[in-house]
Design a protein around this nucleic acid. Structure first.
Lengths: 198, 198
DNA sequence: GGAGAGAGTTAGTGAGTACTAACAAACATA
DNA sequence: TATGTTTGTTAGTACTCACTAACTCTCTCC
C-alpha cells in the first residue's frame, strides 16, 4: 500500500467515526504509521485529504449495468436481488454516507453525490415495475411511489443498523428483515387472483 | 425565556448542525445573546451543556397512552395515524437524533435513549397487529417483522428528508409517500378475499 | 437607599491544532 | 559511488478553543 493510500484509508475511517473536526491530522498520521510531516507533503491541507478520501472511497456503480442483465422477471427473486445489491453498495459506501450526514453541507457536491445511487435505483425499479406490469406479472400502481417506499424501507434498515445501534430494537436478522420486506411488496404488487398460487 | 433556556435552545440547534466540536461556546453565547462568561456561569462545561440540552429537548412519549385510545381498528386509518404520529415525534426530536447519529458513542446512554421510542412503537404495532388478526381484520403473519418493516420505511423517509436532502430524489410529497406506505402494508396484511371490497 | 443576584467586559491562561522550515537519514536507481 | 526521492525528526508559528479571574453595571426587593 502506498503512503497516499494508507493516509486516505485511515482518514476516511477516522473522519466517519469522529467527524471532520474530531479527527486530527496528528492522529491520522499516527494511525497510518507515517509522520505528520509526510501527511502534509502528500496533501496540501486536511480539507483536501477529506476530498481525496471521498473520491477514493466512494464506489460509484452504474445501476443499469449492475442490474439489468440480472433481472429474471420473477418478482420475488428480482426484488431480493435488488435489495441485497442495495445493501452491498451502501455498506461499501458506509463511511462516505456517514460523512455526508454529518458534513454534508460543508463539502460541496457531497449530498448530490450520495443521492445519485438512490435516484438511479429509483428510476431503475420504476422501469422494472412498469415492465413487470406490461408482462402482466404485477398490478397497476404508482411505480415511482412504490419504488420510493421500497428504497425507504431498505434505507431505514441500513441507517438504523449502521449508525444508531438499531439492532438492539429487534433480534431479527438483517437477512430476515430483507426477505420480509420483499414479501410485503410482493403482496402489494401481486394481483389477488394470482396471489393464491403459492 | 430564561438565560438557561436561551443557551440550551441555541446549543441543541448548533451542535446538531455543526457537531459537538464544530459548535464553539463563543458562537453559542453570541447567538443566544449572552456573554460567554454567562454561559459558563450557568453550565460548568461545554459537555454539560450538551447533556442538559439533550435532557431538555428530547421529548419522551409514552406510546401506549399516545396511541391506544386513538386506535379505531380500521387498518388504513390506524396505520396512517401511527405513521403520522411517528413523524411528528421524530421531527420534534430531530436535533437529538442527529446528535445521536454523530456523537452517539461519545454520549453515554444517548443511543439507548433514542432507540426507546422505536422499540416501544415496535411492540405497540406488534400487539396491534395481533389484535387485528384476532378480530379477523388481517391475515396471519410475522407481526414483529411486519412492525419492523413498517418502522424502517418511516425511518428511511424521515432520515432521507431530514438529513441528506433526500427530497431531491423524488418530487413526491411526504404526505403522499406516507399514504403510499400505508397502502403497501394494507395489501400485505389484508386477506385477498377481502381485498376486493375497495 | 442598600444589599445581593445576575449579567457584561476585559484580559488572560494553557492546551491543542493545522501547518511550516530546515536538516538528516534511508532508499532505490543509474 | 553519486544522485534524487521519500521519509523522519525537531522545533516552531499562528491561531483557536474551553474555561477563568476580577471588576463593573444594573436590576430587584426590602
Amino acid at each position: 500500500m502506498t503512503t497516499d493510500e494508507k493516509i486516505l484509508k485511515v482518514a476516511i475511517d477516522m473522519i466517519a467515526k469522529k467527524g471532520f473536526k474530531g479527527a486530527t491530522t496528528k492522529q491520522i498520521a499516527e494511525k497510518a504509521a507515517v509522520s505528520e510531516m509526510t501527511l502534509f507533503r502528500h496533501f496540501p491541507s486536511k480539507k483536501k485529504i477529506l476530498e481525496a478520501a471521498i473520491d477514493r472511497y466512494y464506489y460509484s456503480f452504474q445501476m443499469k449495468e449492475l442490474f439489468e442483465h440480472k433481472l429474471i422477471w420473477n418478482l420475488e427473486k428480482d426484488l431480493l436481488m435488488i435489495a441485497e445489491t442495495y445493501h452491498t453498495i451502501m455498506k461499501k459506501n458506509k463511511n462516505v454516507i456517514k460523512i455526508a450526514i454529518q458534513e454534508g453541507h460543508n463539502v460541496p457536491g457531497l449530498l448530490e453525490q450520495v443521492n445519485k445511487h438512490p435516484r438511479q435505483l429509483k428510476e431503475l425499479i420504476e422501469k422494472y415495475l412498469e415492465e413487470m406490469h406490461k408482462r402482466n406479472h404485477i398490478k397497476d400502481c404508482d411505480y415511482e411511489l412504490t419504488a420510493m417506499n421500497f428504497l425507504y424501507m431498505s434505507y431505514g434498515l441500513f441507517i438504523s443498523r449502521s449508525f444508531v445501534s438499531g439492532e438492539i430494537i429487534t433480534s431479527l436478522s438483517e437477512e430476515d428483515v430483507i426477505k420480509g420486506s420483499v414479501q410485503v411488496f410482493i403482496d402489494h404488487l401481486t394481483p389477488s387472483e394470482v396471489n393464491e398460487k403459492v
